[in-house]
Every structure is written in structure tokens, then in C-alpha cells.
């Protein structure tokens, strides 16, 4: 790990100004990913601005009936929060499917959104990687890519976003609140993470000097019909090969509202609200509907050898998650 200056932030404005004014400075929340990457010399910040003394630890009701989760609320505290587990069980399940208890106790809501990829080439500083060092190349396309992306890839990068929580936040249609020297803004979840394109070194649309202050959930959270299915190499404490967060509102056997996002398949949680409207809403909640939807959602998927199995795994996982969500709460 490189030497760096440590600063305890006393206010949002001062913290953002410090990072804006110091090249290579970064914010730190829980640090479970950042400190790990610093140990591998993948991240080499000149300064770390510790946000933990700022007041972003509350879960609070919003006037519109939604729920605001402060950026510093730990993953554990979100997952076990009574309002979250009751009204947004999809979010609780996704969080508890990820990492270990120790990591969830330390990792924050804001930090979870900013996790870097787990691609082995990104982690290994002895190899090229366009995400770590732009312009050096991507060995993953012809190399070790079993865990990597099949959708939204570019010539430069086939990395996946590793979060479980973000897959649920995508399906729920969360909004990310951020603030920085240029003011505050709201970022719809689908616009928060980006596809790699020609700039795989940039994971999100958040500026380097902007701070996530909260993640806001909409009023309804698919409390009656939701499922998080995570397919992985071992039953616990492993990243997703493919995961699906599915939420439905069903009335008289017909889908009234839907949110579906995939993890483990792209540089961001993979979701298409337009297709949900066109191919799920107003249709009967049955397997034919789900199949037609998954074919459209996953159109254009491309494997790179080791990860070809995801081309078969992703479609069946989408269908299974939708079936499980639709039947949730029914008597066996």
C-alpha cells in the first residue's frame, strides 16, 4: 500500500472541496473494497477523506412515501431494517446474498454502488487492463473470463459489476442523491452506472468530487411478489455468475407492474424498463410471457469462451426468478 494523507471530514462541503482541490484524493466510507484494492496497488490515492463522521446514517421516510437510506448506513443495517425487510424484501434478500457478515457490517450503502469489478486482470498489476490503466489492452476477452460480461461489452472491456445490492436497487428503480462543489443532483439508478465503451476506467456518472448522500427507494417495493436468485460457484460468500432481481405486481393473473435486473452479466445492473412495459405489463403472469421478455432483454448477448455458459444460464434464471416472484406467498 502506498503512503497517503488521511483527513477526517467534518462537513460535506469541506470534504468535496478537499477532493476537488487535491489530485488523486478519494473519499472512504467502509473501505472494504478500497482498502483491498490499495493493498494490491490497484488504487493508490494521494489522500483519503474519511466520511464516517458525517450524518448520513439514517433510514427515513420520504414525504412521497418512499424510503431514504443514508449513504453511510451499513449493508447489514439496511438488510435487517424492519421497514426494508417488510416493504422492500427484494433489497434485503439481495444484500444478504452478498459477501460475508463481517463485510456487510462494514460496507456502506454508498460504497456498495462504487465497488470495482472483480476481473482478475483488473486486480493483477502485472497484466494489462484498460480499466486500471487505459490503453494497455484487455487480456480477458481471450483469457480468464468465466465470471465476465455477456451484455453491453466493448472492445476495451468485458468487466462485470460485482454488487448484489445494486441489482435489487436497479429492479426497484432507486434514485441516487449526490452532492458536490457544483451542487446537488438526483441520478436515476439506471443512469448511475455506465457501460464500458471507450472509457472502461470510468464506472459511474458520479464525478470524482461528488459524494453520494443517500439512495432513495420509491413508494412501492414489490413487497408481495419478488425474488432474488443468485447462481454462484458455492452456496455462500461468492460473487454471482448470474443473478436476477425480479419484482412484480399481479392482479387477477395479469402483471400490473414489473422491475427486473440482472447481475453478473454486464458492466452495470442490466435492466430495460421499456421492455418491462411492452412485454410484461398487461400480460398474463405465466412462463410464455417471461420467455418472450427474456429473449428481448438478453438479445445480443455474446460469450467470450469460458463464460459462454451464461448465454444459457441467464435466460433460465430470468424465467425462474419471475415465476418465483409471481408465486411468492401462495400456499404450496
Amino acid at each position: 500500500m502506498n503512503n497517503f494523507q488521511y483527513v477526517r471530514a467534518e462537513g460535506l462541503d469541506g470534504a468535496a472541496r478537499f477532493v476537488a482541490g487535491h489530485v488523486g484524493a478519494k473519499f472512504i466510507g467502509g473501505g472494504t473494497n478500497l482498502v483491498d484494492l490499495m493493498k494490491y496497488n490497484v488504487e493508490k490515492p494521494s489522500s483519503l477523506v474519511d466520511l464516517n463522521r458525517l450524518s448520513m446514517r439514517d433510514v427515513s421516510e420520504l414525504p412521497d412515501g418512499g424510503l431514504r437510506i443514508g449513504a453511510l448506513v451499513t449493508n447489514s443495517d439496511v438488510a435487517y431494517h424492519p421497514t426494508v425487510s417488510t416493504r422492500y424484501p427484494l433489497l434485503s434478500r439481495a444484500i444478504l446474498a452478498g459477501a460475508s457478515a463481517q463485510l456487510r457490517n462494514k460496507a456502506t450503502t454508498g460504497g456498495n454502488l462504487l465497488q470495482r469489478t472483480r476481473c482478475v486482470y483488473f486486480y493483477d498489476t502485472a497484466t494489462p487492463c484498460n480499466k486500471r490503466e487505459p490503453g494497455t489492452g484487455c487480456p480477458a476477452k481471450e483469457g480468464i473470463n468465466r465470471t465476465l460480461a455477456i451484455l453491453g461489452t466493448s472492445v476495451s472491456c468485458i468487466a462485470t459489476h460485482p454488487s448484489d445490492m445494486c441489482v435489487a436497487l436497479g429492479a426497484l428503480g432507486a434514485v441516487v442523491q449526490v452532492t458536490g462543489p457544483g451542487g446537488s443532483r438526483s441520478i436515476p439508478f439506471e443512469q448511475f452506472h455506465r457501460l464500458p465503451g471507450d472509457h472502461p476506467e470510468i464506472d459511474t456518472t458520479l464525478a470524482a468530487d461528488e459524494i453520494i448522500t443517500s439512495v432513495d427507494l420509491p413508494r412501492t417495493g414489490f413487497a408481495g411478489h419478488s425474488a432474488y436468485i443468485k447462481v454462484r460457484d458455492r452456496q455462500s460468500y461468492a460473487f454471482a455468475l448470474v443473478s436476477v432481481a425480479a419484482g412484480l405486481e399481479v392482479a387477477d393473473g395479469v402483471i400490473a407492474k414489473a422491475g427486473v435486473a440482472l447481475g453478473g452479466v454486464a458492466h452495470k445492473p442490466w435492466r430495460n424498463p421499456q421492455l418491462e412495459q411492452e412485454l410484461l405489463v398487461g400480460r398474463p403472469a405465466n412462463r410464455d410471457t417471461y420467455h418472450e421478455f427474456q429473449r428481448a432483454l438478453l438479445a445480443g448477448a455474446q460469450g467470450f469462451g469460458e463464460n459462454d455458459f451464461k448465454l444459457k444460464l441467464a435466460p433460465v434464471t430470468v424465467v425462474r426468478a419471475l415465476e418465483q416472484a409471481a408465486h411468492e406467498g401462495e400456499q404450496a
Binding site: V35, D50, S100, Q102, L103, N105, K106
Partner: peptide, 21 residues
């Protein structure tokens, strides 16, 4: 998990904690 300690009663991986924090 071999480094697990309790911080204010909560278990964490002490290897991923910066002591100054």
C-alpha cells in the same frame, strides 16, 4: 475471517480496517 474482531460489539475484518478510522 481469521482477523475478525468486534468493533463496538460488531464483527468486522480488521485487515480491511484502517486503524486511524
Amino acid at each position: 475471517g481469521a482477523c475478525t474482531v468486534l468493533v463496538n460489539g460488531v464483527r468486522v475484518n480488521s485487515c480491511l480496517c484502517l486503524a486511524v478510522m
